[in-house]
Structure formats: structure tokens, C-alpha cells
Amino acid sequence: MLEAALHFAMIFRSFSGSLRGPAGSGPRRPVLDKVELPPIEKLAALARLELDPGEKERLGTQLTKILAYFEKLSEVNTEGVEASPYAVALKNRFREDCPADPEDGMLRGQDLVEQNAPEKEDGYYVVPPVMGGEEA
């Protein structure tokens, strides 16, 4: 849990801090214009993806091309248009906070959950050191 929390905290910090739009454009840009793709290494680090040199080159070129195509959206006047995160209007749904019915299968699967763990000890997941980088 702690690892996961740290993981997301790091991603969040990276998003809010280190990767800003082009200088001078300000954080809120109403329309698209020519956008330079940040270095592929930066994006790969944010996405926690190790890329080999061939992938870096191919993906960098392709992403630039794809983004250029996305600029087509700047033709559309969206002033006063509301955003639709979902196609249908969804409301938050609450459910009762109570133990699951043992018959619905969610509790039966606990052994399988454990079997899926790549490394475990006494019912805990084992991961390499969170900091330091010593050989595992």
C-alpha cells in the first residue's frame, strides 16, 4: 500500500511540477496550436516505462505525427460547450458498507490472489528496496 501511495504521489508531483506547457503560453490555453512533444525520455519516465533506443526513436517520431493529426480539433469552436467525461449522466452511487456475500465468489478467490503474487512472505507482498538501489 505504501509503495503504491508513494508511486502515485511521485506521478502526481511530476505531472503538477516538472512538465509544463511551453513557456509563456500559460497553464490555460483555450485552443490548440503547434505543440512540441516533450523529450520522449521525460514521458517514458512519467509513464514508468523503460524504452530501448530503437523504441525511443520510433515512438518519438510516431507520437509527433499523431499529435499533429490531433491538432485538427482546434478547428472546432467549443466556446460555451460543456465537457462530457461520460456519455451518460452518471451520479455517484453509494452502497452499504457490509461484508460481501461469501457465495458471490469474491472471497473464494483469496487463494488465487495469493498465487498470483510474484513474491510473497507471510501473506505480504515482497518488493525490492523502496530507496537505495542496492542489488536485490
Binding site: R20, P22, L43, A47, L49, L59
Partner: peptide, 10 residues
């Protein structure tokens, strides 16, 4: 990578 870019600040 595309998704990470589109969701990033700025």
C-alpha cells in the same frame, strides 16, 4: 505515452 502526455499539466 500519448495518454500521459495529454493528461499532463499545461
Amino acid at each position: 505515452l500519448l495518454g500521459v502526455f495529454c493528461l499532463s499539466a499545461g
